[in-house]
């Protein structure tokens, strides 16, 4: 069964296309991540799926209904964690959980929800006294209080410290394994890699790749060679120096040089020979398996090339 079906979705703001023909499906019980930089169209797509915005064209079906015109029953079955939306700061955590929970057909107990999101100790504190990360957990609490079948999480861990992120990941994983369908947007690659069953990579309003994190990483079919730029080479000469040596285009960010290579043995051999001849050291030289980050960079680079 499909929880979400999107085909050829478009959203225009005037003459600007924020979403330019996107199609994907999310299966029931799946954790699906939309990955993309800011402005790629993630939030626009999610808000259309939630019913907060209407599509300019295309077909969208969520839990078997069209979200833009769906009513109360639909909203009873979904949970929404928006990117930025406040909670009444004059109320305590318990009060808002009970208040929002009270409008669903069924809801979890306030203490239970507070425990799930790690706010047990703050359950009687006013929202106004909480830190930013704690408020974000209140958002999560209000997203799950109505026992949703489908949970939308729009950048759920942005602004979290590492330990809070890990806790939220644990919670999302638990929800996922308990059968809740989760539609997640993120610009953290490690988040998508850790949580998602499948990832859709979004760039400039288009879905440029889709698959399990494994699939996507395998698609790059390569090994990532990276090292620190030696002092003898200027950053703007890095591409012209190492491109020919490695036989592929290299990416330079700061002093880090990276390249994704299909046959690393020969390339690494040429690279180390070059270094020996030039008499320089290649600090932090590493040869490793591609990560989702490499996939993402490779994909968005291609996109950028096509656009130019």
């Amino acid at each position: 069964m499909l929880a979400i079906e999107v085909s050829d979705l478009r959203k225009n703001y005037g003459d600007v296309q924020a979403v330019a023909g996107v199609s994907f499906d999310v299966r029931e019980g799946e954790v699906y991540a939309l990955l993309g930089e800011n402005g790629a169209g993630k939030s626009t797509i999610v808000e259309i799926l939630e019913g907060h915005r209407t599509a300019s064209s295309g077909r969208v079906e969520v839990l078997g209904v069209e979200p833009a015109t769906a009513g109360r029953d639909f909203r009873n079955r979904i949970g929404i964690v928006l990117q930025s939306s406040g909670v009444e700061s004059e109320f305590t955590v318990r009060e808002v959980i009970e208040l929002y929970g009270g409008c669903y057909r069924q809801h979890l107990d306030a203490d239970e929800v507070a425990g799930l999101v790690g706010l047990d100790e703050k359950v009687d504190a006013r929202i106004g006294s909480l830190s930013g990360g704690q408020r974000r957990r209140v958002d999560l609490a209000l997203g799950i209080v109505g026992k949703p079948e489908l949970l939308f999480l729009d950048e759920p861990t942005t602004g979290f410290d590492p330990s809070a992120r890990r806790k939220s990941w644990d919670l999302i994983e638990r929800l996922g394994s308990a059968g809740t369908t989760v539609m997640l947007t993120t610009h953290y690659l490690d988040e998508a890699e850790r949580l998602a069953d499948r990832v859709g990579v979004l760039s400039r309003g288009r879905l440029i790749a889709e698959g399990t994190p494994e699939d996507l990483i395998n698609k790059v079919s390569g090994t990532v060679v990276s090292f620190m730029l030696p002092d003898s080479v200027e950053p703007d000469e890095a591409a012209s120096t190492f491109g020919p040596v490695l036989g592929v285009d290299v990416r330079v960010s700061g002093r880090l040089v990276e390249a994704t290579i299909d046959h690393p043995a020969a390339a690494v051999n040429r690279l180390t020979s070059w270094a020996l001849e030039a008499g320089v050291e290649l600090d932090s030289l590493s040869v490793g398996r591609a990560s989702l980050e490499d996939v993402y960079l490779a994909l968005t680079e291609d996109e950028g090339d096509e656009q130019q």
Binding site: E50, H52, R72, N76, I80, L82, E88, C103, R105
Partner: peptide, 9 residues
């Protein structure tokens, strides 16, 4: 807050 309420049943 209004937007949050609109997303509830």
């Amino acid at each position: 807050v209004l937007k949050r309420w609109r997303g509830t049943p």
